[in-house]
């Protein structure tokens, strides 16, 4: 009953969001587009990093791969095929990273992903300067921002659905166990490396697609623009604020932080990285399980107190 109700409510929300471009102007659509982009990025990040606690710092590496693939191929291939190619490149890079690090301790994975964006940025720059002889590409497509927005919204729905299905499946349990204690998981006979690799690949492909879909929004693309480390940083802080271990956590974190980021970059363009950095540290200190984890903890404690109190009152009355 409750499940049916929340499904209907969800469908209504997504329908309303899909219809929004007809009522909002160009600015409003662009704003929603950015928001849905970050909600998708944070949810895709949490798909792998939430339950396993393997902190991936490579979000912008995959995002940039997606965006750059579109910039290179959009004139020669139909747009759906470009997305497929981008997803495949993202998949290959994810498998390469995963195969070389996910069999080892988590810290190797973190280190590898930390420099990955810078590595790919330098390789792309080198390739463009030495082989094609130009740096920076123009990107003109024949559709407006609302088409980009609808594609992103669809990807966002798919991401949340994958998150929901994974959580309810054996894979979700396996991931949770890996996050709690990897040694125990291995002793139970879980193929931990394979589970981690599969989920990391899925998460990376989604992030690559976000970059690929959003690319036409820039019209001019350069390695420093699409490999901007702020994107990795924002994705991470959004997922952490809401609670990376929960399906709706990244959504809850992404909405207020996107609003804050828009406001900060408009009003304090020079200082926003300091403010966001401090906020990030504060979240790690105060809300280690995110807002949803915090609420859940206090809610159960409050209810436990209340029921204990009413029990006491009943006993006193009786």
């Amino acid at each position: 009953m409750i499940a049916a109700f929340s499904f209907t409510a969800l469908a209504a929300v997504f329908t309303a969001l899909a219809a929004a471009p007809f009522f909002l102007g160009t600015y409003g659509t662009g704003f929603l587009l950015g928001l849905v982009g970050y909600v998708t990025l944070a949810s895709a990040w949490a798909l792998f990093s939430g339950p396993t606690r393997y902190v991936s710092l490579a979000t912008v590496a995959f995002f940039g791969i997606g965006a750059y693939t579109v910039a290179v191929l959009y004139e020669t291939l139909p747009s759906w095929l470009v997305l497929v190619v981008a997803a495949l490149i993202g998949l290959v890079v994810a498998l390469l990273v995963g195969l070389s690090t996910l069999r080892l301790a988590g810290v190797y994975f973190v280190i590898f992903t930390f420099g990955l964006a810078e590595l790919i940025r330098q390789i792309v720059t080198w390739y463009e300067v030495n082989i094609t002889g130009t740096l920076g590409r123009y990107l003109f497509v024949d559709y407006g921002p609302e088409v980009v927005y609808w594609k992103l919204l669809a990807l966002c729905a798919v991401t949340l659905a994958i998150g929901y299905l994974v959580k309810r499946s054996r894979w979700g349990l396996a991931l949770k166990m890996i996050g709690d204690d990897e040694v125990v998981a291995e002793h139970c006979g879980l193929p931990t490396a394979r589970v981690k690799l599969a989920l990391f690949a899925a998460s990376s492909v989604i992030i690559t697609l976000v970059g690929a879909i959003q690319a036409p929004r820039w019209t001019y693309i350069e390695p420093t623009i699409v490999f901007n480390p702020t994107i990795s940083f924002l994705t991470l802080i959004m997922a952490l604020l809401g609670g990376a271990g929960r399906l709706w956590g990244p959504v809850v974190g992404a909405v207020p932080l996107f609003l804050l980021f828009e406001w900060l970059s408009a009003n304090f363009p020079d200082h926003y990285s300091i403010i966001l950095g401090l906020l990030f540290i504060a979240i790690v200190f105060v809300l280690p399980n995110g807002v949803l984890g915090f609420l859940e903890e206090h809610w159960t404690r409050l209810r436990a107190n209340r029921s204990a109190k009413s029990d006491l009152e009943k006993r006193e009355a009786g």
Binding site: V55, Y272, S273, I274, L276, G277
Partner: peptide, 13 residues
Amino acid sequence: ILTTFGLLFVIQG
């Protein structure tokens, strides 16, 4: 890892 990642952006800023 998370705290020093935040610190990175503070120092850089």
